[in-house]
């Protein structure tokens, strides 16, 4: 390709990049403004007064506990989802049995349920087994509802894994479990990083389940912190912006970390493959 082609390409990529990054800048400015400025002014003017107290307001609202709940619920749900989804996808795509297409179909149907259809039956189920107002109800719900989409994403990758690896492993006398944990899982590291990112974002930002199943303050998560600033007649948008920024930072850091893993993983698996 020639030089002009590259310049055009970079201009295009740059424009898309600006388009994608501006919400961060906007959100940051937003978090430092007052209600009237947020609604009246252009989104990109600098705040007239830099209202850092929006952050103080948010912090005093007891966000620390919510924060910790968000972290552990997100992490546990991700681990369970990634493990169970990998296992099931492995069994469906790599092992030989008759019902695999049917079971796969069942998981795919799980993708299609609208969450508002599920929420009321789920509530009454959790109520019956005494899991209402228990953070584990959230963990298992996140795991279950992310399993189908996680498996779909894994599926495309598992289909492309070379059969020879398994054959070689088995000829060497390797058990299925060893093969799965020692060979297959590491090989799928890039896609695992991908699904970790996706799961992380879903779990971190989710609030319908938390709002419905949790009533004690001690178990609520960060997204509920946002609700604190939405009033019956009045809403403190600046504080919501600050909450959003605070809740964005850890996920941004984790995202960059795992995003690098997407690349690293490949190079290591390429060596093995």
């Amino acid at each position: 390709m020639n030089r002009i082609g590259y310049i055009i390409l970079y201009i295009f990529l740059g424009i898309v990049g600006v388009f994608q990054i501006f919400p961060l800048i906007w959100l940051f400015l937003f978090s430092l403004k007052s209600n009237s400025e947020i609604f009246a002014g252009s989104p990109f003017t600098l705040p007239k007064e830099w209202l850092w107290e929006n952050y103080a307001t948010v912090w005093e609202g007891g966000i620390g506990l919510y924060f910790w709940n968000s972290v552990w619920i997100t992490v546990v749900a991700i681990i369970l989802t990634a493990l169970f989804a990998s296992m099931a996808t492995f069994a469906i795509t790599r092992m030989q049995w008759k019902l695999n297409k049917l079971v796969l179909g069942l998981f795919m149907v799980g993708l299609m349920i609208p969450i508002h259809s599920a929420i009321i039956p789920l509530f009454s189920m959790f109520l019956n087994v005494n899991l209402i107002d228990n953070p584990w109800s959230i963990v298992i719900t996140y795991t279950a509802y992310n399993l189908p989409i996680t498996m779909m994403i894994l599926l495309g990758f598992y289909y492309t894994l070379p059969r020879e690896i398994e054959e070689a492993a088995i000829i060497d006398g390797c058990s299925v479990h060893r093969m799965f944990f020692r060979i297959i899982l590491p090989m799928t590291a890039p896609v695992l990083s991908t699904i970790i990112i996706i799961n992380m974002i879903y779990n971190w930002n989710e609030f319908v389940f938390v709002n419905t199943f949790i009533s004690s303050d001690e178990y609520k998560t960060l997204t509920v912190g946002i609700q604190n600033f939405i009033g019956q007649y009045m809403t403190d948008w600046g504080a919501i912006g600050a909450t959003l920024i605070i809740s964005l930072l850890p996920i941004l850091a984790a995202f960059i970390f795992f995003s690098n893993k997407v690349v690293e993983g490949i190079s290591s698996s390429a060596v093995k493959g």
Binding site: I119, I120, F123, S124, L127, N211, T212, S215, S216, Q227, N228, I230, G231, Q232
Partner: peptide, 19 residues
């Protein structure tokens, strides 16, 4: 106490009433 914002409050009452 349990405190929710307007919209969430309405939704939650609805869910609670079904059970």
């Amino acid at each position: 106490l349990e405190v929710l914002s307007n919209e969430q409050y309405k939704d939650k009452i609805k869910v609670l009433s079904t059970s």
